[in-house]
Amino acid sequence: MAASSSAAAPADTYDIPWVEKYRPSRVADVVGNADAVSRLEVIARDGNMPNLILSGPPGTGKTTSILALAHEMLGPSYREGVLELNASDDRGLDVVRNKIKMFAQKKVTLPPGRHKIVILDEADSMTTGAQQALRRTMEIYSNTTRFALACNTSSKIIEPIQSRCAIVRFSRLSDQEILGRLMIVVAAEKVPYVPEGLEAIIFTADGDMRQALNNLQATVSGFRFVNQENVFKVCDQPHPLHVKSMVKNVLDGKFDEACSGLKQLYDLGYSPTDIITTLFRVIKNYDMAEFLKLELLKETGFAHMRICDGVGSFLQLSGLLAKFALVRETAKA
């Protein structure tokens, strides 16, 4: 589908989400997770796919690679050789028993070494009952039909199914990998940008390629230019540099500056949850002594818990800064 859509006329460029437009159609083009992807490439070439569970956080290319794999393996007979069900389809117990079993019994002429494929996307949202029903089906029809399950947490798949599959893990993409793909898209769409803008997009995406592309498209269609301010305007997160300088001020003992920085953020209208989420990510990657990091993380955690409890006041945030300062005082030699 990506192949056909990329050939579309430039007039309707903005009609298709870039996520779809630049979805790789070949396994080899999938970004990141080099090990897993190279194995899937071998499967695409040689056939005989084992039952697979692809698990990993969202936006790391699970669905993309399994669809590409199916297309590459089955080619023209994709339409009759693949049954794709995702969470929006009816996937209750009787559907699994009926639809999947019927599909498994169907006869399709395929090239040698190829099998029919059942793709169950978002398999962790299937009920336990439905998964139980899948168990025997997988075994009985294994010589004609293979299964590929994509899910975010493989632990939500029941053990008997896990035991029948090889687990392929996808991890978050590195910043370089996302950047590489962004550059391709930027070049293809002729987007005006500054490097800091792309950096900001990568920060907001947090290893999620889908989000990176969506944020990029949103920024472009909103402001026609990708720089830091525009990205944070669109994605609307507290600016990490701002938060970082706040933490730095506290650690340097400039408590007043830190407080005014916080006040500024709060006055911009960010909710305490937003602020604390960014704060956590900043602290996690901030380079400081081990003890300080541990204590700061702990205090952030407790503040986050209180905010989730409903005490999302400005006072809590200032209190958090005060606690940071206290930690600094106790740690200081």
Binding site: D35, A166, I167, R169, I202, K244, N285, Y286, D287
Partner: peptide, 13 residues
């Protein structure tokens, strides 16, 4: 340091 880092190493089976 201010940006999230992704893991490069793929964990085994």
């Amino acid at each position: 340091d201010c940006y999230g880092l992704g893991s490069v190493i793929h964990s085994p089976c």
